[in-house]
Design a protein around this nucleic acid. Structure first.
Lengths: 222, 222
DNA sequence: GTTTGACAAATTATCTATAATTTGAGGTGG
DNA sequence: CCACCTCAAATTATAGATAATTTGTCAAAC
């Protein structure tokens, strides 16, 4: 057993909570009670509080002093903000990564695109989509930039799952194909332009609220 | 007295440590020992550990499980990375802020430029420079974006203070003036172009190392 | 003179118990 | 109905204890 692995308890707890928040398993606004969570993980409150600070930094939770920590809520304006930040940073990353892209990386990215097109549910589509984006930008070798983009992808996924919790129909991703084609032909500017537009495409979808009426939900589809 | 203010002890500790790390008062690589710091602040180790997680998220400290937390080190590649990220994100922010800029904001920014030009030391120059940049982008009203830019400014300041700890000679900032002029004339594209080049200008300066020889230090001057 | 090994000291990471403060809920009285 | 009081629950923080691990020292061996 063991599997202590070099990982601290706080990291494991924060990752586990992050997964649930992103998946929508814990609703926005829900209070995260340290003692309950500590009990759930068989831990004390100390690592739980550390996990809270990590979630806060990722923008997944908000802390009000003396009033505890809640799952962060989000609105349309935040979806737009994240989309534009992703566009700016992913384009920057792609420009640096482009000279280091190999045929092997590009075919792995193509495989990820196919996996996304054939996905039966949102979760596996999101996983494939994230894999595609990560593959083509990782060779930029800019750790701070990549970490920032990862956090933005987490936020994106949260929006997506909130809107498309069920009822997902995959469609072939022409943008991904266009990006790959441009990269293969060395047309970096074209690839960057398509990528920028791609991640800023915001889908809309009517969703039933708790009150019984429907209201539009928005998410980044790319 | 009191001044409990709505702030948690961990926040105060992390801010205090962040200031010292940015100012270069604690050298890169230095171990941050929780019990020592706890004693210094008259606190216990729990809020200190929370402060560490915050510093980690800001990129000012790195943590190795079971081996503690160290002040993050940095190299030229990281200076470049931060400069490019700042360029990408500040341009995005400026585009959104531009329509909301008022004459009052622009004259406050002009005042900040003058304050920078007349600064006698790096710290006050950095303060004025940061004020200028914050002023012209704050009206974008994108909290996540502004928070990300703030963190990048902290990293920038760290590079700057490491290279120009003493011996600072101020010079009139023509870029700031050009940006303001373009904004006044509604030439947003021009302002963005100048801003992008401006924050990517990396200064170089020979600095004496502990070993006795000199080596070049680099920093973002804008 | 290095290198190795053993042992002591320091440090991290965690738990448990406890105190102080604050929030929020509920009930009582005006 | 609203104001106010009380009280339970939760957060924030302290303190002390413990196991595991890292670090540092010092002497013996090569």
């Amino acid at each position: 057993m063991s599997a202590q692995k070099e990982e601290t308890l706080a990291v494991r707890i924060s990752r586990s909570l992050a997964d649930r928040i992103i998946a929508g398993a814990i609703a926005p606004g829900t209070r995260l009670r340290q003692d309950h969570i500590a009990e759930e993980f068989g831990a004390s409150h100390v690592p739980v509080r550390e996990a809270f600070r990590r979630l806060e930094a990722q923008g997944l939770a908000v802390s009000e002093p003396r009033r505890g920590v809640r799952v962060a809520s989000f609105q349309l304006s935040e979806v737009k903000e994240v989309a534009e930040m992703r566009a700016a940073l992913e384009v920057l990353a792609l420009r640096h990564a482009a000279p280091h892209l190999t045929p092997a990386i590009l075919s792995a990215a193509e495989e990820a695109t196919r996996a996304g097109d054939n996905s039966k549910d949102v979760r596996s589509w999101e996983e494939a989509n994230r894999r595609f984006h990560r593959l083509i930008i990782t060779p930029c070798a800019m750790p701070r930039l990549l970490a920032a983009i990862d956090d933005l992808h987490a936020a994106s996924a949260r929006f997506l799952f909130a809107a498309w919790r069920s009822a997902w129909e995959a469609q072939t991703d022409h943008d991904h194909q266009a990006i790959l084609q441009a990269l293969r032909q060395g047309q970096i500017d074209v690839a960057c332009t398509v990528l920028s537009r791609h991640v800023q495409w915001i889908g809309r979808r009517p969703v039933a609220t708790a009150g019984g009426d429907t209201q539009d939900a928005f998410a980044i589809i790319g």
